[in-house]
Amino acid sequence: MSKRVLITGGGSGIGKAMAETFAAEGARVFITDVNQDVLAECPDSWLKMAGDASSPEHMREVFARIAGEWGSLDVLCANAGIAGPTALVEDIEPEDFRRCLAVNLEGAFLAAKYAAPMMKAQKSGVIVITSSNAGLNGFPNRAPYAAAKWAEIGLMKTLAMELGPYGIRANAIAPGCVEGPRIDGVIAREAKAKGTTPEIIRAGYEAGVSMRSFVTAQDVANMAVFLASEGARLVSGQVIAVDGHTENPDPKV
């Protein structure tokens, strides 16, 4: 039987690359996204639902539909997230801090909360959380994002311990800078905050990576598919960096 895969934040970027790669492997794919327009551009063969990953009501509806359509779930990719504000900690509004944690951390928690009973009942399953190398290092001017991504790793390790006895594995992927509009926006905001140019900020990020390169959404998707495969059957509780090896999370150039 083909894998049944749910990907939150699956309408664009890393999430869409995950969906496409799982589908190419023969999986049945269900994506959620807060943006209805990007969902409309995804294949009609995928199950789709628009909504906020940090909303308990939305996630209950998603899993009710999974129960009705598929009966259970084999793979959860808790991928939904937002960049949050770019500012020094003293300049960040509390509501912006809370919103960043809600989408990134609470979104992953809710998805795992509703996936766990399904997976425990079948005594199998895989949970992959999209964290970040910001969850392995500090990240100046990005306190809410770094806090959320560190917390996601703690959540993942706890899930691995709670669910392992039921044959369920949990891991996190820690991407570096991923090519695309999202990192372009982050770089532009950081350049503005530091009074410099996006080109200088980008060069600084690249200089802090051993391989002197950003990664692609496909690089991250490939790791997700591997972690969900039999080839990773005893890989659990791990953080896998897909970042070309970050030497310095805040390089100065």
Results as ranks from 00 to 15, higher is better:
A191C: 07
A111N: 09
S229L: 00
A64T: 02
P198W: 04
L163P: 03
R212K: 13
E41H: 08
P175L: 13
Y166L: 08
S55P: 06
A67M: 09
K16I: 03
V235H: 09
M18A: 09
A80K: 12
A191L: 03
V103I: 05
I92T: 12
P56K: 05
N248Q: 15
L101P: 06
A23F: 12
A147Q: 08
V29C: 10
A121C: 03
A108G: 13
I127V: 14
L39F: 03
N171C: 03
S12C: 09
L155D: 02
C100I: 07
E93D: 14
A40P: 14
A207K: 15
E25L: 03
R28M: 11
P198V: 14
P144S: 03
V178K: 05
A67T: 15
V253N: 01
I82N: 05
G138T: 07
A172W: 00
T32Y: 05
K149N: 07
D96Y: 06
S55I: 04
R142V: 00
V178H: 06
S12Q: 15
N104Y: 14
W70G: 04
A151C: 12
P140K: 02
M211H: 13
S2T: 12
V242A: 12
Y205I: 11
F139M: 02
L227Y: 06
A147S: 14
K157T: 15
E69L: 10
A134S: 04
S132Q: 14
P43D: 10
T86H: 12
D44H: 06
G125S: 08
A143H: 05
V128I: 14
E247P: 12
A64G: 12
A203V: 01
T158N: 13
A83G: 14
S72G: 11
G81C: 00
P117S: 10
A148F: 09
G107T: 03
T216M: 07
V178S: 07
V75G: 05
N222Q: 13
A112L: 04
E106Y: 12
E190Y: 06
L136Y: 02
L39V: 11
A224K: 05
T158I: 07
E206I: 15
W46N: 00
A27S: 15
F109V: 11
P144Y: 11
Y114M: 07
T216P: 03
H58T: 00
G208P: 08
C177A: 14
A193N: 03
A207E: 15
G71M: 06
S2A: 15
N171D: 01
M161C: 06
I201F: 08
A111C: 15
I153V: 04
I127M: 08
G81P: 03
I240F: 12
I82Q: 13
Y145F: 01
G9Y: 02
D37I: 09
A64Y: 08
K192I: 04
K252R: 12
T196M: 01
G138F: 09
S124C: 07
